[in-house]
Amino acid sequence: MAKQPLLEIAAGSVASAVAAQEGGADRVEFCGTLAEGGTTASYGALAMLRDRVRIPVYVLIRPRGGDFLYGDAEFEIMRRDVETCVSLGCDGVVIGALDADGNVDPRCRELVGAAGKLGVTFHRAIDASANPSRSLEDIVALGCERVLTSGGCANAQAGAHVIADLVKQAGDRLVVMAGAGIRSTNLAEIVELTRAHEFHGSARAVIRSAMRYLNPALQDLSPDIEQTSVAEVRAMKEVLTALSR
């Protein structure tokens, strides 16, 4: 590969972000509630993150789960969250919004403007858009440096050929980062098929609860948590390192 490949880890907690760093990740996308596809983490989590993580941190700006069609109040929340990231000294933000017809919402320009000198990634809202190729041009026009995509499919492996087309279309204008469902076991294939140079995954593993007491009446609520695995991050980095030799 001509460029050194980069691994970004989606971390849903400070512990996961620290694990990503320990495993050798190049960058963290920090968010909350990964089960919903990620939402903006709390101020307290962001502040602690800056104290404990040295690698670049991009913060997901998303007020809720569900679709990417946001009202005025939700846009104001996102703008204020971007400003919070600026004040905390984060390295970048991850944004995205669509209109009702599946086009990139022009108001995203306000979020890019609020980010100032921070880096800006456009997230997988592009995968929910009506025309990813056209949306890519809109994202370039916004001034984003990167877009995260699974090629409009449930995972990057299924959408690999579309990602490859977007990589070619983007050229040197912005980075197309492949993401969704990427693990160390399929990463090499995705690299080969997409020709991308940046890759995004959560590298999660189940952490069994340390609770000694569990209420038997709450069996519908699992006490276990999912957290980034240091070993899986290392395995993913090893794959990319081997391919870049």
Rank of each mutant, 00 (worst) to 15 (best):
T84Y: 09
D67P: 10
V112Y: 10
R208W: 08
T39R: 07
G23A: 04
Q169P: 07
L243F: 13
R109V: 11
F199L: 07
E189Y: 00
D220I: 12
A178N: 02
C153Q: 14
E232F: 06
E74I: 02
A73D: 11
R50C: 03
E76M: 13
L193Q: 15
P132H: 10
I225N: 06
I95W: 03
E29S: 06
C85I: 06
V14G: 00
S133R: 14
E76F: 10
V147Y: 05
V93Q: 06
R134P: 05
G24L: 01
G179C: 04
E74V: 03
S222R: 12
Y58N: 14
I61N: 09
G38F: 05
E22I: 09
V140D: 09
E137I: 07
G65D: 08
I77P: 01
D26M: 13
Q157A: 15
S229F: 00
Y43K: 00
C90H: 04
A97P: 00
S222V: 04
A130F: 07
A2S: 13
A180W: 04
M211T: 07
L218Q: 11
D26G: 15
G143W: 12
R52N: 11
R212F: 03
C108P: 04
G119D: 06
V162D: 01
T228K: 10
L221C: 12
C108K: 03
M48R: 05
H200M: 08
A100T: 15
R80A: 15
L148Q: 10
H200S: 06
L243A: 15
V104G: 03
A203I: 01
S129I: 06
R52K: 12
V57R: 00
L218T: 12
T241Y: 11
P63M: 10
S129R: 01
V94L: 11
M211P: 00
H197K: 04
G102V: 08
A158D: 14
K168Q: 15
D224H: 15
I139M: 09
A10D: 07
P132E: 01
V28F: 03
P106Y: 04
L69D: 01
L218K: 13
R64T: 05
A180R: 02
S13Q: 09
V162N: 04
E137T: 09
A47P: 01
S150D: 08
R208N: 09
G89Y: 10
T121P: 01
V206N: 02
G102R: 00
L118F: 13
M1P: 03
A35D: 12
A170M: 04
S202G: 14
R208G: 11
G116H: 08
E22G: 11
R245D: 13
S42G: 08
Y43N: 00
E74H: 03
L7F: 09
A164K: 05
G37P: 08
L88Q: 03
V18C: 10
A125P: 01
L69H: 11
E8P: 07
A170V: 05
V167P: 01
R134T: 14
G119F: 02
A210V: 11
T194A: 04
